[in-house]
Design a protein around this nucleic acid. Sequence first.
DNA 1: CATTCTGTAATTGACTTTATTACAGTACAA
DNA 2: TTGTACTGTAATAAAGTCAATTACAGAATG
Lengths: 136, 136
Amino acid sequence: MNNGRFPISLHILTLMASSAGELLSSDYIAGSININPVLVRKEISNLRNFGLIESKEGKNGGATLAKSADKIRLSEVYHAVQQASLLGNSKNKPNPDCPIGKQINLHLDHLYEDIEGALLHRLEKMSLADFLRQFQ
Amino acid sequence: MNNGRFPISLHILTLMASSAGELLSSDYIAGSININPVLVRKEISNLRNFGLIESKEGKNGGATLAKSADKIRLSEVYHAVQQASLLGNSKNKPNPDCPIGKQINLHLDHLYEDIEGALLHRLEKMSLADFLRQFQ
DNA sequence: CATTCTGTAATTGACTTTATTACAGTACAA
DNA sequence: TTGTACTGTAATAAAGTCAATTACAGAATG
C-alpha cells in the first residue's frame, strides 16, 4: 500500500469504536490524529461509501460506526483505502524490445497478487474490535 | 512497500540472471527498464551492499550476480530496498493527550510487523531462479 | 593516453499528498 | 426564525517525494 490513508482510516475507526454510539466531530478526530479536519472529512466520506461509517450533518452532527466493531474486518479498511498496488505499482514502461522487459510486468503482477492475498488473509483475521482490545 | 525500487531491483537482477556471468552495463539495463542509468547505478550500488551483485569499474565494466540465481531469495531483494514500513509509514504524530492517539502508533507497528512477516514468508519461498523460470 | 565504463553528489523538474481557504447546505436550539 | 455548529465538497496553495538530469572524478582497458 502506497499511502498514509490506511493508518488515518484505522485511527478514525478506532476512535469511533472506543466511544461507540457517540457522534464524533471531524475537528475532534483531526485533533487526535493531528491532521487537517478536511482530510478527516474526506476519509469519513470514503469510509461511508464503503458502509463502515454513518454521519450526520448539522449542529451536534458527526460520525459513528455503521456497524459494531466486531463486524468490521481490517481487510475492509484496506479495501476502502486501497487504490494502487501494494508493492510499487507497475507503472514502469519497460522496453518491449527486450525479452525480459517485455514480460516482466506480467510476472510482477502475479507476484503482487500472490503477496496481496497473503496480506489480506492476515487483515481478514483481525476485526476492529480485536484491534481496539489491544489498547488499555 | 512504498516505492518503485523493488520492481527496479528485481528487473536488474532478472536481467543478470538471464545472462549469467556476463557483465551488464548500466546503460544497457536502463534501456531495458526504461529509466535513467544513474538510477540503475544507484540501485546496483545498493544491491552490492547487500551482497547480491558484484560490479567492475572502468572500460568493459559492468555488473553481474554475486551468487547464483537459485541462491537469491526474493526476500533478500525486499530487504535490500526496504526502508519505510509496508503500510503507510508511522510518520503520523498523533496527539499524545488522546488515549487512542497516544498508543496507536505502537499497535500499528505491531500490525505492520505481523503483515510484513506474512509477506516475507511468501518472498522467502521464491528464488530469483524461480522468478526467471516463469519467462519463456 | 584516449575511451568507456562506474560511483556519487548536486540540482532540477514532475508528481503526489496534505493543508488551507472558502462556502453552500443541514440540523438543532434558543 | 435566526444564530450557531456542524458536514460536504471544491479549489488552491504549500510541502514533500521521487526520478531525471547534469556534472565530474576515478578506474580499467586497449
